[in-house]
């Protein structure tokens, strides 16, 4: 299958390892990955902060860039939710954007949805000998309804011990510009999330969104906790062979 990768601006700029992992994983599973280079950002920051028109322009750009793709894979549940849930509202009914999104929207997937629902795999042949907790990020949990998909993928990883995260469904407090507009509340929420993760004795906290992980990871790092963050793609891409070289 030919898979178009929408990397997202955060991953592209700050977490290229996540992108490389997605490519490695999907190619290992026997698929072709393409990266339409005109892509930039889904516009979620603009949309969520109240800047609807710039968000609509970025939505048009996305729709144009990925027009005709068989499947668009996004290693961010939050950006996938922006595209599927909010793009249709950004165009007037009958507009080119709303027509394009009516066609394209259902073929835009978060990585874990794509693996489980489209490719039908839960054991991706990964090896990751660590104690791990999974934080279900809000848009993955509530907007996309990822349910147990990420857990099924993680449980099939050899060597991985999946621990239970207390208060898992509570928001980590990132919330995009919320993290600075209401920095004190955001920090208080982030600290509780970090504390819950630390109390499990895990080595790694993983999620389907690097933006949330950047916030939780920044909190953990400031605490000198030693607990590190990883996007789920990096865990799923890891094998005995690749593990030895990283």
């Amino acid at each position: 299958m030919r898979i178009a990768l929408f990397i997202t601006c955060v991953n592209d700029t700050l977490f290229p390892d996540t992108g490389r992992s997605v490519v490695r994983l999907l190619e290992r599973l026997g698929h072709e990955v393409v990266f339409p280079t005109e892509q930039t950002c889904c516009g979620q920051m603009h949309y969520n902060t109240g800047y609807r028109r710039p968000a609509a322009r970025l939505a048009v750009r996305f729709a144009r860039t990925f027009d005709g793709a068989d499947a668009v894979v996004v290693p961010s549940a939050s950006c996938a939710a922006m595209i599927r849930e909010h793009y249709p509202k950004l165009g007037r009914s009958g507009s080119r954007l709303s027509r394009r999104m009516a066609d394209l929207g259902p073929r835009v997937y978060d990585l874990t949805e794509f693996l489980v629902d489209v490719l039908g795999v839960t054991d991706v042949g990964a090896y990751y000998p660590h104690k791990v907790v999974y934080h279900p990020t809000c848009h993955g949990l509530r907007s996309l309804g990822l349910g147990d998909r990420p857990y099924r993928l993680l449980r099939a990883v050899r060597g991985l011990e999946l621990l239970e995260l207390p208060g898992a469904t509570e928001c980590c407090g990132f919330g995009g510009t919320f993290s600075v507009k209401n920095g004190d509340v955001s920090a208080a929420m982030g600290f509780d999330k970090a504390r819950h993760a630390m109390e499990t004795g895990a080595e790694v906290l993983c999620a389907v969104d690097n933006s949330c992980l950047m916030h939780i990871g920044g909190t953990l790092s400031r605490q000198r906790s030693g607990l590190r963050i990883a996007h789920i793609a990096e865990i799923l891409a890891s094998t005995e062979k690749e593990y030895a070289t990283t």
Partner: peptide, 25 residues
């Protein structure tokens, strides 16, 4: 300024030397 509301309580992520798209290209 406003960015201080982040760094007051959280470390910034390390900025990688190259972006994903550079690697891809």
């Amino acid at each position: 300024g406003t960015a201080g509301k982040w760094t007051d309580t959280r470390d910034l992520p390390e900025i990688p030397r190259g972006s994903f798209r550079q690697w891809w290209n």
